[in-house]
Amino acid sequence: MSKPNVDEEIPIPPPVESEFPLSPAQVGMATFLCSEAAFFSTLVVAYLIYLGEDQTGPTPAESLSLTRAVINSAFLLGSSGTIMLAMNARKAKSLNGFSVWMFGTITLGVLFLVGTAYEWEELIYQDGLTIGRNLFGTTFYTLIGFHAFHVTLGLVLLTVITFLERAGRLSAKSEATELVSWYWHFVDAVWIVIFGVVYWMGT
């Protein structure tokens, strides 16, 4: 029996090219974000299941402030816009434009976190809502907490990637910056869902 050997000329017709439209890193990030979506969906489902099941307050309507949530959302949604501008600047090879917009994004992200911190302070010290107070507290802090954790992680990534770009440590072909922006958009999208489910429905 003849052993096939790749060194030999393979007697088959010329190949049909099948290029997948995305690069491995893009597929990897997209898949990772899918798993993140499954994770947040679980937290949202838990929140919804327990919504209105509490015997003791405070309820979402009593304790949440839609105004504050809208302001917070403006920060985060705005940061999605600024990171898009940063990506455009990067495509146009404007390192300064990129840096400015990234700085803007990071600032808006930090403002969002500060807003969340204020909200939590008020909830804990004025409304007495803690994670152990009732089911709303349990599900609310878990959901919002994990989102805020993702925002924090995103801010670290944004900072690191900005410094790397400025230091010229990333090649022009590197996809890292673009993928970090995907992640940031995803965190933003999760917030939109949270805004609808927690703040809009709740107040």
């Binding site: 090219e17 099948s18 997948f20 491995p24 597929v27 898949t31 798993s35």
Partner: peptide, 14 residues
């Protein structure tokens, strides 16, 4: 994640 990226994007030509 790794497997999906590999299978979708790294198949041999053809």
């Amino acid at each position: 994640v790794n497997l999906i990226a590999t299978i979708l994007t790294m198949r041999a030509p053809g």
